[in-house]
Nucleic acid binder design. Structure first.
Lengths: 165, 165
DNA sequence: TATTGTTATACTCTATAACTATA
DNA sequence: TATAGTTATAGAGTATAACAATA
């Protein structure tokens, strides 16, 4: 039965196993792996909730309470977008950045163990290819992508601007 | 934000997208992609429900009603295992085999489109590596694997035996 | 006593729809 | 009028526990 070799089956096995291991590594963060992915995403970006939801592949109504819990835990903060007061920008707090730093190694180790059965070169190649395939799919689908990049650029500008203006 | 390049995120994007596309291709089968995967698994094998559940990475209580629906649709049949009358062996019906044959190309095409962004060589390499990683993980975890292989061998033997005995 | 599969139940996760506040 | 986010609610999917039949 293991000779049943379809792509969907393989992706399912890998993804479920990733979730199981990441769960163990990120149990201290609200919503575990998903909460961790949010922290990861917010490092170096301050996206709107809508863009964040699209990036994670989840519904915006789901994201609302996930972010609620991260805010309650003091790891994330919301800021009204000055350019559109309907929108909320999400940002890491200092505690969030510290938590991310503390968990990153453990998560990386669990990801490494996921591919431990493969020769190191193959594991690296798999990671590279999976990443490229995902980015192509995601950028193709996600009309927010450009807006997100613009958001990031705007935030960085803003951070630098006070000294210059 | 697309520069966020972790394995878990990539696997999630690919797996969700696989599900979405496979859903469209297998809408005529009960439980869509999962039902299709069962048909696929039963081609050339007659596993117990427990082994089938382990193979698909789902709970045995969930599998019960998925198989119920496939049986109701006439695609799968259950047979009491002669060697252990507690166990149910699952097998494709003729209609199930025909349905599988009819859908296989559509699913394969949707899988191909999933990786269409990559050069053909890379896509093939990705498929190969993902498959190998999944099999290693799965075989390592799944203590039923050997039993399943034995089951398959037994069934094949049985099919050949009448002429010889 | 342990295991296979089933059933009933409860729980989690996700999506739909309605609402607000902005645009 | 349309969009971002929130809330309430319903729905799908999943897991837990108890059970019957068999080992």
């Amino acid at each position: 039965m293991a000779e049943d070799l379809e792509l969907g089956w393989s992706l399912g096995v890998l993804f479920r196993e990733w979730q199981r291991r990441a769960q163990a590594a990120t149990a201290s963060v609200p919503h575990g792996p998903r909460g961790f992915q949010i922290l990861q995403t917010l490092e170096g970006a301050t996206p709107r909730q809508g863009a964040l939801a699209a990036h994670l592949g989840i519904d915006r109504t789901v994201l609302t309470y996930v972010v609620d819990d991260l805010v309650d835990a003091g790891l994330v903060e919301r800021r009204v977008d000055p350019s559109d007061r309907r929108a909320q920008l999400c940002a890491l707090t200092d505690a969030g950045a510290r938590t991310l730093a503390a968990l990153r190694d453990a998560v990386a180790a669990s990801e490494g163990a996921l591919l431990a059965g493969l020769p190191e070169r193959d594991a690296a190649e798999l990671e590279r290819l999976v990443r490229r395939a995902a980015i192509r799919l995601h950028v193709g689908d996600d009309r927010d992508a450009c807006r997100v990049v613009a958001d990031v650029a705007a935030v960085l500008d803003e951070a630098r601007a006070p000294a210059r203006r």
